[in-house]
């Protein structure tokens, strides 16, 4: 597959700090590329540079064959962006918002009506097109923004925290639409999210921290690098239990966070029966699971992504 985005030695430094520190990556045509990282990791800065909204300090960005520094206009034509915050004109109707977008992007006059209908169908808003956006719910506004981002048939769709601030049910719906899009249109998607379960739909994920990309692979491979299973347990005396575990089961990797002890073992099935029989400190809670992206994140950064806030701009 061809690379639709190529980023080389991209840097962004402000007076007193480096926001993006010499990163390199490619996004392949047709894939969903996830961008993960805690608040202040440099995700938004990177996206803003790719979208031509911010000039890089150094480095190069190529999108759809166009130079992000020189051919800004062509880059802008090639991308669609769904921003974190609402960027609809709420005083206008859904249709008017879409029509304006057609004008901004010079969608051929004869095709405008048809395209508006088409994108409204994708996000199930056909019946709402004559209503003003201020009467819409949060989820409807998001869907309308997604529809708008698709109007000019962009090569890459950027989704910056597309489900932030939405209730779980609406979040699930939004992802349904996004997946439907990928299947039907084969459009390349570049997304950032701090909901790790949502990042799982990505074909590849880049984890960013302190301005650097510290890991990049498919979610599957990232989780496999951790290997084995994770056992979470709580006991009546965690400190004592940890010492005991380290003595009796040296093969397990032990970490603790708040009042939970995490054990990483090659295979939980073989380990657990022996372990429970031998543990003297009484157990209060036990959970066995496969590694998640959160564990990946934890192992790379030493922090829990769930405790970080989404980026604010």
């Amino acid at each position: 597959m061809n690379n639709i985005i190529e980023v080389r030695e991209l840097n962004k430094t402000y007076k007193d700090k480096t926001a993006v520190d010499s990163i390199d990556f490619d996004v392949k045509e047709g894939e969903i590329f996830g961008f993960l990282g805690p608040n202040g990791a440099g995700k938004s800065t990177t996206i803003n540079m790719i979208c031509t909204m911010l000039a890089p300090t150094s480095g190069s960005i190529t999108i759809n064959g166009f130079d992000g520094n020189k051919d800004r206009r062509d880059v802008r034509k090639s991308i669609g962006i769904i921003f974190q915050e609402n960027t609809l004109d709420e005083k206008l109707t859904a249709k008017e918002n879409l029509m304006l977008h057609c004008r901004f992007y010079n969608v051929p006059r004869s095709k405008r009506k048809e395209r508006i209908q088409e994108v409204l169908m994708i996000v199930d808003l056909v019946d709402e097109k004559e209503n003003r956006v201020e009467t819409f719910s949060g989820g409807m506004k998001r869907r309308l923004e997604i529809a708008r981002g698709l109007l000019h048939y962009p090569k890459v769709l950027f989704l910056d925290e597309p489900t932030v601030g939405l209730d779980p049910q609406t979040r699930a719906h939004i992802w349904e639409y996004i997946l439907r899009l990928k299947e039907k249109e084969g459009i390349t998607m570049f997304l950032t999210t701090h909901y790790l379960d949502e990042a799982e739909i990505s074909d590849r994920i880049a984890i960013m921290d302190h301005g650097k990309i510290i890991a990049m692979d498919s979610p599957e491979n990232l989780k496999n690098t951790l290997g084995g299973d994770i056992i979470e347990l709580s006991t009546q005396d965690n400190e004592k239990a940890m010492l005991e575990i380290q003595a009796k089961a040296p093969e397990a990797e032990v970490t603790s966070k708040e009042d939970i002890i995490y054990l990483k073992v090659a295979s939980s099935d073989a380990f657990i029966s022996e372990f429970i029989k031998n543990l003297e400190v009484p157990l209060t809670r036990l959970n066995i699971r496969k590694p998640t992206l959160n564990d990946v994140f934890l192992s790379f950064t030493g922090r829990n992504i769930a405790s970080t806030e989404p980026d604010k701009q």
Binding site: R73, R76, K77, N86, T87, L88
Partner: peptide, 14 residues
């Protein structure tokens, strides 16, 4: 302030 400027600024219009 209401964000609409972003929609305009990322579009190809000069």
């Amino acid at each position: 302030n209401f964000g609409y400027m972003k929609e305009i600024l990322v579009s190809p219009i000069s």
